[in-house]
């Protein structure tokens, strides 16, 4: 699994796999194709275990990225409430 919470900075931090998703040219289709094709070198059970663990990892990413997105949006929202006041300081 990826490192602790702090690792998930907006650029994916040290998590090499998460990093891939931050790459502009990332295409889900290609990623899955390569993942499955390489896993299939051994046998079909290997493919199933690789796929299941990747799915677990992706769920983990989804959870943390969503949390971070929510906190970022909250910051923007809170700012917009105080906005009129900020310019006078």
């Amino acid at each position: 699994m990826a490192g602790g919470d702090s690792v998930l900075m907006s650029d994916g931090g040290e998590d090499k796999i998460l990093n891939i998703f931050f790459d502009e040219s990332f295409v889900p289709q290609a990623f899955v194709d390569i993942l499955l094709f390489n896993a299939a070198r051994q046998d079909i059970n290997q493919v199933q275990s690789v796929t299941s663990s990747m799915l677990g990892r992706l769920d983990y990413y989804t959870k943390h990225l969503t949390k971070e997105l929510e906190s970022t949006i909250r910051k923007l929202e809170s700012l917009s409430e105080t906005l009129p006041g900020t310019w006078d300081e």
């Binding site: 998703f21 931050f22 899955v32 989804t62 969503t66 997105l69």
Partner: peptide
């Protein structure tokens, strides 16, 4: 926020394709 949303959608597409596979 935009970056995170973009990555989230890619993660989602990847996992739904992987699940069907």
């Amino acid at each position: 926020a935009q970056k995170l949303q973009n990555v989230l959608s890619k993660v989602h597409q990847t996992s739904s394709l992987l699940r069907d596979a």
